[in-house]
Design a protein around this nucleic acid. Structure first.
Length: 476
RNA sequence: CGGGGCGUGGCGCAGCCAGGUUAGCGCACCACGUUUGGGACGUGGGGGUCGUCGGUUCGAAUCCGACCGCCCCGACCA
């Protein structure tokens, strides 16, 4: 029987229990690696579809670059090599023979894509160039956690090239908006858009932008990143072009990524003690139909009605009929609630006789979430209810986010704030003050939000004048 | 990689301290029957070299050592 530790008892255990019981993933025989089971992978496929659609609308095309990167490529960009060296997986033997040059299993693809871009770009007329790839990457992390941090993970990485700094900067912010739109509209998760501090930015970036989401325990999860790489990689890989004045210029590049960690974000942002709650837009099964019967005669009538419902909803709704005979309706109710299916339709003999069905919302367990609707017009009622669930999940997450967002004015208040959620505080910008907070509280500087309050303040640590607020939080 | 905890059928655990016949329990699984509007019940079954390797002993799940893995708290990170 499904056994899920209550969140208040042990949040980490709750997270792991949900993943196991909902059959999202299982541990692989290699440390730090997971198997994406079909139900978990289906969530990722829906995330992929939602993100891919947006990238294509922004002018991106998909391509695929190799898994293996020559070791020397990683070393060409100074900060990139120091940032990624500790976590590289390196292949030194191929076909039984020691390789002349070791191959890195990509931790990210700026280098190999930069190498190719250098060959493809000659003129300003070749710009802008926007390419995205869906792939796996490997980072040899010390400490792993299913979905949130695994040795191998799946993601999309988009890489673009522009003629000017301004265009690259604009792109970094545009794609950040793209991710934000996905998070809000599809994942139903509110996020803080911001800029990473120097200490937290991507290795090799001029500037990194992030969206930070709040999990159910108040901790932050960096949910997507968008980097303005400046000319760092174009200089390292000689990505140059002739401008309209026939002058040779180094290009300006950007990169952007969103990973399978997003599956973990969905689990932790919406789940409750009964298990998963999936936003309808990302749910592999949006509607589960549970038939109820006693006699064989009732069974055939009820199942016939289920098939009518399938014909009405099937073309537009991801739905299944759970006609298994070995489980009782009550068991199925709990099972599908654990798996986070947003809407359940119950159909029994009474409903068949009345030409009606019962709709039960996952996000409102028990009687309050149930209502009887006529078969006539069922498709519209289901669409409306799914939309309402999608909207309500976002509102609930937003209310939680706000309730756990604090504006401490003293260092002691900051300590208390980061124990509960996000702390917005004035920060002078110095790495020392940032490091002190991390050392004292384990909370890190998540970002400098793009939307800043008016006025100025004094640094929460050193009391020097500060022109910007930063968000501090404990993070995954 | 440091600190703490834990490895016993698929899941959750007991047994270990005080070594001794066929290693138990709940759930899950298989068969049959009765059930089915919020996790049904009966009867009968199947499944474990007790994380791995080595040591002590007449005898090891139990004692000793090493290693491996997992979880939690840190340092590192999407």
């Amino acid at each position: 029987m499904a056994r899920i530790t209550p969140r208040h008892e042990d949040y980490s255990q709750w997270y792991l229990d949900v993943i196991r019981e909902a059959e999202l993933a299982d541990y692989a025989p290699v440390r730090g690696c997971i198997v994406f089971r079909p139900y978990g992978y289906a969530i990722w496929e829906n995330i992929q579809a939602a993100v891919d659609r947006r990238f294509k609308a922004h002018g991106y095309r998909n391509a695929y670059f190799p898994l293996f990167i020559p070791y020397s490529f990683i070393q060409k960009e100074k900060e990139h090599v120091s940032g990624f060296s500790p976590e590289l997986a390196v292949v030194t033997i191929g076909g039984g023979e020691t390789l002349e040059e070791p191959l890195v299993v990509r931790p990210t693809s700026e280098t190999i894509i930069g190498y190719m871009y250098a060959q493809w770009i000659q003129s300003y007329r070749d710009l802008p160039l926007r390419i995205n790839q869906w792939c796996n990457v490997v980072r040899w992390e010390k400490r792993t956690r299913p979905f949130l941090r695994t040795l191998e993970f799946l993601w999309q990485e988009a890489h673009s090239v522009f003629a000017t700094y301004e265009e690259a900067e604009e792109e970094a912010l545009r794609v950040l908006d793209l991710y934000t739109d996905f998070a809000v509209e599809d994942a139903a998760i509110p996020v803080v858009q911001g800029r990473k501090s120097e200490a937290e930015k991507f290795a090799g970036a001029l500037r990194s932008y992030t969206i930070e989401a709040m999990m159910g325990d108040g901790r932050a999860l960096q949910s997507a990143t968008s980097h303005n790489l400046g000319q760092n990689f174009s200089r390292a890989f000689e990505i140059r072009f002739l401008d309209a004045q026939n002058q040779m210029q180094y290009a300006w590049t950007t990169s952007h990524g969103l990973s399978t960690r997003t599956v973990g974000a969905v689990i932790m942002a919406h789940g409750d003690d009964k298990g998963l709650i999936l936003p309808p837009r990302l749910a592999p099964i949006q509607v589960i139909v549970v038939p109820i019967w006693k006699s064989d005669e009732e069974r055939s009538r009820v199942l016939e009605t289920c098939e009518q419902v399938r014909r009405m909803l099937g073309p537009e709704i991801r739905m299944e009929v759970d006609a298994r005979e070995e489980y009782t309706p009550g068991w199925k109710f709990n099972e599908w609630e654990l798996r986070g299916v947003p809407l359940r339709i119950e159909i029994g003999p009474r409903d068949v006789a009345e030409r009606q069905v019962v709709l039960a919302r996952r996000d409102q367990p028990g009687a309050p979430g149930k209502r009887v609707v006529p078969m006539e017009g069922l498709l519209d009622a289901v669409h409306e209810t799914l939309s309402a669930i999608q909207a309500d999940l976002y509102q609930r997450a937003l209310a939680f986010h706000k309730a756990h967002t604090h504006y401490p004015e003293t260092y002691d208040q900051l300590r208390e704030a980061v124990a509960d959620g996000f702390a917005w505080a004035w920060w002078c910008g110095s790495p020392e003050c940032e490091a002190k907070i991390k050392a004292d509280t384990t909370a890190t500087n998540r970002c400098i939000p793009l939307e800043q309050p008016d006025g100025r303040g004094r640094c929460i640590v050193c009391n020097e004048p500060a022109s910007e607020m930063a968000v501090f939080a404990r993070a995954y």
